[in-house]
Simulated assay, not measured.
Amino acid sequence: MEWTIHELATRAGVTSRTLRHYDRIGLLAPSRVGANGYRYYGSAAAARLQRILLLRRLGLGLAAIAGVLAEEVDEFDGLRAHIEELEGERDRIERQIRAAHRTLEALRAGAEPSMDAVLSGFNDDYEHEVVERWGEHAFRVSNDWWHAKSIEQQRAWQRDADDLVASWIAVWKAGVAPTAERAQSMAARHVRWLSAIPGTPTAEGDRERSILMVKGLGDMYVGDPRFSAMYQDAEGAGFVRDALHAYARTRM
């Protein structure tokens, strides 16, 4: 099956001028040019145009698109990449829809929109870190779990998290040693809290990765000012780290 330049442009929602431009810059050549000079596009060219238009919608410039397409080994790799991008775009749109629903819910409940903004994501701001440390699956599952909650459920979860931090601070200020039973009970509570978050290694019963996660979180509480501030200062965060390390080492 072939389409003229006008037919393909109409089907794709672009102009014939756009297709001629793509041809001039070597991005999309017609499948053949007739004796009359007309451009004709076959199914392979139409599929390539679909990829180009998708990448354009994702914000890539034409030079970048050319680079992406040049690196694709075969049509199967290209189609798989296309599917992944579509799925990513679908997930992004679904998150936006859920965020809009949460804002509407907050407004109906008389809540300040700014509060909804604070509670709008579980780990969106840390997506790169979560994916790098624990994989795409961990981020997607935990993020979907969070976004499925209502405003009140999110607030309740935040209150529980705040209570966990406050309890850690109280134990630290009491002068308890990180390896003492009271501190280790707090570490066990912390791990149970993690296990309630779908997608985490602790929730999925992966012992080896759970140990790494608990130790890694302890290190992050000290090394990352965003987290050490929650425990008042580096000393408080260090107490939590030492207790979690001891728990992971001896009780997991």
Rank of each mutant, 00 (worst) to 15 (best):
E2D: 15
W3H: 07
H6E: 15
L8N: 05
T10M: 08
T10I: 06
R11D: 12
G13R: 05
R20F: 00
Y22G: 00
D23R: 09
R24Q: 15
L28T: 04
L28P: 12
S31Y: 03
R32E: 11
V33S: 14
G34F: 03
A35F: 03
N36I: 03
Y41L: 00
A45L: 11
A46E: 13
L49Y: 08
G61N: 07
A63K: 11
A66Y: 01
G67Y: 02
A70Q: 14
E71R: 09
E72W: 06
E72F: 00
E72A: 04
V73E: 11
E75Q: 13
F76K: 09
L79E: 10
R80N: 03
I83E: 11
E84D: 13
R92W: 06
E94I: 08
I97N: 12
H101Y: 08
R102E: 11
L104C: 05
A106N: 08
P113I: 05
D116H: 12
S120W: 09
D125R: 15
H128M: 12
V130D: 14
E132G: 12
E132R: 12
W134N: 13
S142V: 04
N143M: 09
A148Q: 15
S150T: 13
A156F: 00
W157L: 11
W157K: 09
W157H: 15
Q158G: 15
A161V: 07
D162T: 03
D163A: 10
L164P: 00
V165L: 10
W168Q: 03
A170G: 02
K173D: 14
A174V: 05
A174L: 03
A183G: 08
A183T: 02
S185A: 13
A188E: 12
W193L: 03
L194Q: 06
A196M: 06
G199S: 01
T200S: 06
T202L: 02
T202A: 15
T202F: 05
G205T: 01
D206W: 02
R207N: 04
R209V: 05
R209A: 10
S210P: 14
K215R: 15
G216A: 11
G218N: 04
S228F: 01
D233P: 10
A234W: 06
G236W: 01
G238D: 10
D242S: 07
A246V: 03
Y247H: 11
R249W: 00
R251V: 04
